[in-house]
Design a protein around this nucleic acid. Structure first.
Length: 111
DNA sequence: TTGCTGACCGACG
DNA sequence: CCGTCGGCCAGCA
């Protein structure tokens, strides 16, 4: 469970996101120890489409709870639909109750 | 090999 | 308040 590439580590954390919860790129980056490299997390998500098992990239949003990566899904509305499917309310590309739904790996996992 | 890019974040004016 | 810029660093041409 090591020797994994940066991408795989991102996927690992992303898969740990509970159903109906969301987290941010920065939170994952911080958990991985590369806080300033939140962009890498997003970049990793870009390749998550080929990763297996599938990574719930739709549960990963930016710091404001905005669906910044929705444009990278198969359909522009797919991300929002998936979130709604989990009971997450989305309005104008923004996750409602983001503060309540926010899942911080640093806190929840807290090794 | 070097350089550009990027699903972000925080700081600065 | 709002727009702009730099930094972070792993992939890819």
């Amino acid at each position: 469970m090591n020797e994994m590439s940066f991408f795989e580590r991102v996927y690992e954390v992303a898969r740990l996101i509970p159903f109906g919860r969301v987290t941010s790129y920065g939170a994952i980056a911080e958990f991985l120890g590369t806080k300033g490299s939140a962009r890498m997390v997003g970049y990793a998500m870009n390749a998550s489409g080929t990763a297996q098992p599938r990574v719930p990239a739709h549960r990963v949003v930016n710091r404001f709870g905005m669906l910044s990566g929705k444009a990278h899904f198969a359909s522009s509305n797919l991300m929002e639909e998936m979130l709604k499917s989990e009971g997450i309310e989305v309005e104008d590309n923004l996750v409602k109750n983001f503060d309540s739904l926010f899942w911080d790996p640093n806190k929840e996992l807290a090794l």
